[in-house]
Structures are given as C-alpha cells and as structure tokens.
Design a protein around this nucleic acid. Structure first.
Lengths: 202, 202
DNA sequence: GTCTATAACTCGATAGAC
DNA sequence: GTCTATCGAGTTATAGAC
C-alpha cells in the first residue's frame, strides 16, 4: 500500500472543497477550512490571496469536473432514444459520485448569475442546440409524438438532478436511509429512461 | 382605495422575508433588513430577540405558506389522472407566485436537515402515502402501465420544481428573458400533465 | 415603542519570528 | 513554508435617553 503524499496546497483545496460545498461561500469560515486541512489560517492566505480567490477556484473546479461529462452527451452523434438513455445513465452516475455539487452550484448561481455566465460558461457553453434540433427532426419525421423540444429537455434534466438537490426532503418524506436512497437513484437510471421514451413514443 | 396600515412587526417580517430569501441566512445582514423595513436595527432585536429567531420565523412562514397548498392535493379524493393534472397546475401556479422560495428552502434544508424535520415537518408531514397507494391500485387494476409509485412521484415533483430552482441556468442556456421564461412555465402546466399521462397510459 | 451610541464579538487578513 | 499573535473592518446585540 502506497501512502499518497499530499502537498499543503492539495490539503487546502480538498478541505476548501468540502467546507464550501456544505456551507456555501457565505457560510464557510476560513478557520473551518484551516481546521479541516489540519493547518492554520495564515497558510490559506499564503497559497491563495484571499477567501474570494479560494472560493472561485473551488467553484470552477467543482463545476468543470462534471459539466463537460454531461455536455458532451448532448452533442454526441447517436439516435435520439440512445442519446436519452445515455444522458440519463451518465448524468445520474456522475451525480451519485458528486451528490452535493448541484445544490452548491445552483445556490451560488442564484447569488451571482452574471459572474457564472461570464467566467464559467464561456469555456464550455451548453450544447443544447444539437439535441433540440434532433427532437424537432424526429417530430417532423413522425418518429415520435409532437412535443416542445425545450420542455422535453427541461423534463430530462429535472428528473435527473432534482432528486439530488432535494435529497434530504425526499429522504425524510419517504423514510429512507442513505443506502436505500442510493439504490433508488441507481434504479432511477433505467426508470427515467423508460418513462421518457414511453411518453414520446407513438 | 384603502391604504392598509402596516404595523412595525409586519414591516419587519416583510423585509426579513425579502432579504433572507434572496441572500440566505448567512448572507443576510440585520442592517439590510432594517433598511428594507425603513427602521433601525435596534427594533429588530426588540421584536425578535436575535437573528436566529427572526430567521426561523421567516423560514417556517415561507415553507408553510405554500406547502399545505400542495400537500392537500396529494390527499384529495379524485381519480389519478385528475390528481396529476391538479398537482402540476397548482404547484406551478404557486411557484410562479413564489419563484425564489424553493431554492431558499432547499438550501437551508441542506444545512440543517434535522431542524427542518423536527420543527417544520411535524406540523404538516407530507401526505404522499395516499398518492402512492392510489398509483399502486391503478397499476394492479391494469388502468396504467406498471411503474414504481415512488419514482412517479419523484418525476412529478422534479419536473414542477426544478425549472424554478435552476432558472438562471436554463434562462442563460436557452437565451430567454424573464417574460419568455414565465410563459414557458405557464405552458408547462399542461405540457407536463400530458407528458406524464402519456407515459403511464396503456 | 423608537431612536442613538456603543459594547462585544466574529472573522478575514497581515506582520513578523523562525 | 509554516507558525503565533494581532489588527481592523464589519456585525450582532445591548444600554440607555426620549
């Protein structure tokens, strides 16, 4: 067994990620991050000039770590039904491994919509156009029922992401523990796919 | 035209609601609330002992102001399809009038899951059992396709709420202004209803 | 009840020794 | 690079006059 050597900077980013994601920018304390990293506050300022800079790094990192994975599927060259299946499976899989990222991103996004669009989005804007066109074509060809492509897109994303955003609420309402909820999400990959395809199939 | 007289306490709660919902517990400043209410900070402490107490009041109020409206539909005595339609229409209508409440609630909920369940939920726990049973019965009777009732419930709630939670993101991705997005949600009432019923109909 | 003034405290940031 | 000690701005909360 190799014990991975972790540099101070890595310790900080790992700790900051944990604290920022659970408490948000305003709720997080530099002291919390220092404690979590097992160092002292001064070091945080040595490596990252201030809280704002540190936060921005973590936010960008969290976002870009899973956004491209999703975005590329939207752009892939495959039949519509396959793309829907691929989207649902991949999205939920990514979320199972990063369950707290969505609420973190959405939250900060609501506070700073402009910053987000400018800085984060520009590097990899959403490739929704491709999917929307594809839906329109299949509707015209009569392959699927008539449906507003934008509404279908909203449906797909909503059903994948929201159960993670509202996890504590659903968990309490359904009386489920961690494992049970995780299994529900695991099954959900195929359930949603079927749900969507059943709805738009003729 | 009657000009409604607003007591100081009402001014405070109105201002606090606005500030807390937009900035969250940690982001909100007592000074902001005082300014918004057109009074001074000391008054906030006179009427509500401290920030924590004031926040709790607003949170509970925001939550209970629209939760029962939804909850009662789940419990209503009507056929499944009618109930689905009623749910989607009512939920989106309520959200159009309180668009920032969901992200506010979900956010604070993630920080304090225990507080929420104990204090808020106990007064009116979710009546999901009724709907779930109803779905199970209709499946057994062969009225609708076989589907996991819990997944269907998740689908319904997700499709209604998430577009409000992720509004800035979708708006940017789709290049829509406020009015266009609002109209999209208005249409969505009937679109979702149809989407769900199409999916589960035999 | 409402205000001004200020105490008490939190927290990000810096200085400076090692 | 890393630490301790501390400053100073910003905030919650209170004291006390009116």
């Amino acid at each position: 067994m190799m014990v991975k050597q972790e540099s101070t900077e890595e310790k900080i980013t790992a700790a900051a990620k944990k604290v920022f994601i659970t408490k948000g920018m305003m709720g997080a304390r530099m002291q919390d991050i220092a404690d979590e990293a097992g160092i002292n506050k001064a070091m945080l300022h040595y490596y990252f000039r201030n809280k704002e800079k540190l936060f921005e790094k973590i936010f960008t990192e969290a976002f870009t770590s899973f956004w491209p994975q999703i975005n590329n599927i939207l752009d892939a060259d495959m039949p519509l039904f396959s793309k829907i299946e691929s989207f649902c499976h991949s999205y939920i899989e990514v979320l199972l491994n990063n369950p707290y990222v969505p609420i973190f991103v959405l939250n900060e996004l609501n506070r700073q919509p402009a910053m987000f669009i400018q800085k984060v989005w520009k590097s990899g804007p959403p490739k929704v156009g491709s999917l929307i066109q594809q839906i329109e074509i299949d509707v015209k060809k009569g392959k699927i029922k008539a449906i507003n492509p934008v509404q279908l897109l909203l449906n797909m994303v909503s059903m994948c992401v929201f159960p993670f955003v509202a996890k504590p609420m659903f968990q309490a309402a359904l009386g489920m523990n961690e494992l049970q909820y995780r299994q529900l999400m695991e099954i959900r990959k195929v359930e949603i796919t079927r749900f969507i395809i059943d709805s738009i199939s003729k």
